[in-house]
């Protein structure tokens, strides 16, 4: 029995190592992290599929008029979100209804989109492809274009053993890329792993304590989200009238519930919230600090914030949030657009 366990654990360690080497898909499960939600049996990760997914992610020809790629709204150096724009900008200059979210550690998300309308990462990409304000295309046309391309037929043949390109293989290739976007090398992570030189400053330590007390119940370590929908005290935007989760469930009690987003790389993923209403972390912290004054229904976790943060506390919190920035991730060459691929 013990022997079996030993063999098994050696096997598992080897498996993880094999994920890490250059030849494999760069996805890996960081130490001490929970089990991912993604069902890897549906879509085996490989290097070929990852590289194909990356090519597709940066390819504008997937959009109706060949002007918009996934990367137009999901830029690597901002944690794979739009920056500067509060609401997403798509085809024909159309402005969407929501702020594009970061694409980080997606294997650990149990649902997608601000309202949780999408239940499976593989099915997510259908949205931007056919959304009239995003890439404005339709699936039969996308599949037709890919099948007319000698370049892609070769790539799909090598990745999936099939040169006839199907919706399923297109979506699986994209997921092979987006799943690989694992961020777990921020100063916070290095500190947790006891790496020399990554000790928190006094200010970061104080910010971390404040965070654990006031924020961690929703933005839970180590992913800094909780796969939950909450009301964090934002007033409804009278123009957008976005009711969040209720649009999906039709339940009144779900009105204004939004996904708790991850805070990893938050320093670079501004503007913030589902409608991008805040540009600076200072505004976010001010918001949480002043909630008790609002006469709004907020989720119970926020009732813990009894009195406004002091200016010093706000600065400390922001200093901690900045320890979640992962430069290795934001500048990882493997995630970038590859020139000379064709």
């Amino acid at each position: 029995m013990k022997k079996i366990k030993l063999v098994l654990s050696v096997g598992i360690i080897l498996l993880f190592l094999s994920f890490n080497i250059k030849e494999g898909n760069p996805f890996y499960i960081p130490e001490n992290w929970p089990k991912p939600f993604y069902n890897f049996e549906d879509n085996q990760l490989t290097r070929d599929k990852f590289e194909l997914g990356r090519t597709l992610f940066y390819d504008e020809t997937l959009s109706r008029d060949s002007t918009i790629s996934c990367a137009s709204c999901h830029l690597q150096y901002s944690g794979f979100t739009h920056i500067d724009h509060a609401l997403s900008h798509g085809i024909d200059g159309e402005i969407g209804n929501r702020n594009s979210p970061v694409l980080i550690n997606l294997a650990w998300n149990s649902f997608f989109h601000w309202d949780g309308g999408v239940n499976n990462l593989d099915k997510q990409a259908i949205n931007p492809l056919i959304h009239p304000k995003e890439m404005g295309n339709n699936l039969p046309e996308v599949i037709r274009r890919l099948n007319n391309s000698k370049f892609y037929k070769k790539r799909f043949l090598s990745a999936f053993g099939d040169s006839v390109i199907s919706t399923s293989n297109l979506l699986h290739a994209l997921s092979n890329f987006t799943l690989a976007l694992v961020s777990a090398n921020s100063k916070y992570d290095l500190m947790k792993r006891g790496v020399a030189g990554s000790e928190f400053t006094d200010q970061e330590k104080s910010g971390y304590q404040l965070f654990l007390k006031n924020c961690n119940s929703c933005h839970t370590e180590p992913l800094f989200h909780s796969n939950a929908f909450k009301r964090n005290g934002l007033k409804i935007d009278e123009e957008l009238k976005d009711i969040g989760r209720m649009a999906i469930t039709q339940r009144k009690s779900d009105s204004m519930l939004f996904k708790v987003p991850t805070l990893r790389n938050i320093e670079f993923s501004f503007p913030y919230m589902h409608d991008g209403r805040f540009n600076k972390l200072k505004e976010v912290v001010d918001h949480y600090s002043s909630i008790p004054a609002h006469q709004l229904i907020v989720s119970k976790e926020l009732k813990k914030i009894k009195k406004p943060f002091t200016d010093q506390q706000k600065k400390d919190l922001i200093a901690f949030l900045k320890t979640l920035s992962d430069k290795q991730f934001l500048y990882n060459k493997d995630f970038m657009f590859q020139r000379n691929e064709r």
């Binding site: 099915k123 959304h131 919706t167 999906i248």
Partner: peptide, 16 residues
């Protein structure tokens, strides 16, 4: 999403 379950048949809501 293989065969008749392929969203290409237009019998699929992406946003929900």
């Amino acid at each position: 999403i293989e065969g008749v379950l392929d969203p290409i048949h237009g019998m699929y809501w992406a946003w929900n």
